[in-house]
Simulated scan of single mutants.
Amino acid sequence: MTTTVVRDVPKQLFIGGAWQDAESGRTLPVDNPATGEELCRVADASPADGQRAVDAAVAAQAAWAATPPRQRSEILRRAYDLIIARTEDLALLMTLEMGKPLAEAR
Results as ranks from 00 to 15, higher is better:
M98Q: 05
D21K: 07
I15R: 03
T27L: 03
V42W: 00
F14G: 02
P69N: 15
S73C: 15
A45L: 10
D81A: 12
T87D: 15
D21Q: 04
P29G: 09
E88K: 03
Q71M: 14
T2N: 13
A62W: 13
L92E: 04
W64P: 12
T67E: 10
Q71W: 03
V30P: 00
F14W: 05
D44V: 00
N32Y: 06
R72T: 13
T27W: 01
L93H: 01
A48M: 09
R7P: 11
A105V: 03
C40E: 05
P47V: 11
P101S: 12
A66Q: 08
L39C: 00
K11C: 07
R72K: 14
T95R: 00
Q71K: 07
K100G: 05
C40K: 15
G50N: 03
M94S: 10
K100E: 07
A105F: 00
Q71L: 05
C40N: 10
P29K: 06
D89V: 09
A62S: 04
A63L: 13
A105K: 02
K11L: 08
A85K: 14
A65V: 14
E104S: 02
L90D: 14
E104P: 00
S73E: 15
T3Y: 07
A65M: 08
R70Q: 15
I83N: 10
I75D: 11
A59D: 14
N32P: 03
A53T: 11
R26Y: 09
G16M: 04
L93A: 15
A34R: 04
T3Q: 14
D55L: 08
N32K: 06
D31M: 09
